[in-house]
Amino acid sequence: MSDATARVADATGNWVDTRAPTWSRPYLRLSRFDRPIGSWLLLMPCWWSAALAAGVAHDIRQLPLVILLFFVGAFVMRGAGCTWNDITDRDLDARVERTRSRPIPAGQVSVTQALAFLVVQALIGLIVLLQFNRVAVATGIASLIIVAIYPFMKRITWWPQVVLGLAFSWGALMGFAVILGQVDLTALVLYAGSISWVIGYDTIYAHQDAEDDALIGIKSTARLFGARTHRALIVFYGLAVVLIGVALVLAGARWSAWIGLAAFAGHLVWQIKRLDIRDPALCLRIFKSNRDAGLLLFAGLLVDAVLRTV
């Protein structure tokens, strides 16, 4: 077994590397607690939908607890998903410069240990899910099918980002299921808008590995779009803003929600203008900035939910 203190190549100087107990570091890295941006991006559609559904219901009494439970659930289930991804991708990760230092290919954790850790995380996620109503529980369990198949998509389709979008946007359905007890048209349109957003930001992320992916035959929208990435982002980010706007109309959202959407849209425009796909470090920074874009929209939706109860 390799040294557990060895760091992952693209995640250095974080609290896991410097403060976490040595024995725990490989497991925290499997869960990406050294790189929490993915958990935040999984969380954003959850918070959007919870706030929007609370506004529709004109009732924010559940909202603080739902926001907290979604926070815990997003971090735990993203960790479980990343652990599953690392188990299935361990041979591919060993062949890519950025990922070969991950715990399994680096020999810090065995596959058996990773599987056991996956079960623990999934059980914690189940405990969180069981705090909700039956519709929400069923909706949450249904997402596991997409999560399970996602790691294999990069081997068979140029569009694995679509499948990631289906998984990472599932929270857009969960908020309505939790607060309203149903998944209606508004939730589905919000879900579609979030999928478009995910396709855009994960295309940016995938440009970090485009050269290595080409060598080992991994497919992605980054490789598919190539030099046309900026135009593709205009399409997908534009579609995201339009679809989320339609969801706001269907939900009867007020001015603060529209300000949040405008700020979200402005951030996406900035990303497109700033992006240079030849600069992997810049691609990573712009990808990470999507947390801020998501929080801008959430702030507008949260204010809207509060104002609708006054």
Rank of each mutant, 00 (worst) to 15 (best):
L248V: 04
L261M: 01
L250G: 03
R231T: 07
H267K: 10
D279E: 12
W270C: 03
V249Y: 04
G217I: 03
H230C: 02
A251R: 09
A240N: 13
P280A: 12
K219C: 12
H267G: 10
D279P: 04
A232V: 00
A232H: 03
L239Q: 06
S256C: 10
D276C: 04
I259A: 09
I234H: 15
G266T: 07
F225I: 00
K219R: 15
R278N: 15
G252K: 00
I234G: 05
I218W: 09
S256Q: 13
I244T: 11
A232W: 02
R278A: 15
L268G: 05
S256N: 07
W270M: 08
W258A: 10
K273N: 14
A262Q: 11
L239C: 00
Y237K: 01
L215Y: 06
L250E: 01
A227L: 07
A265K: 07
D212C: 11
G217F: 08
A222H: 07
T229L: 08
H267V: 09
L215H: 14
D212K: 05
I218M: 06
R231K: 10
S256A: 15
A253S: 05
V242A: 15
P280C: 13
D279V: 06
K273F: 13
I272Q: 10
E211V: 14
T221H: 07
I259P: 04
A247E: 10
A232M: 13
F225L: 14
W270P: 01
R223Y: 06
G217K: 02
A265V: 04
A263D: 01
G245H: 11
A247P: 03
L233K: 12
R231G: 15
D279Q: 13
L215D: 14
V241P: 11
A263S: 12
T229V: 04
G238A: 04
L239H: 00
D276Y: 05
D279W: 12
I244S: 08
L224I: 00
I272W: 07
W258G: 01
F264S: 03
H230S: 13
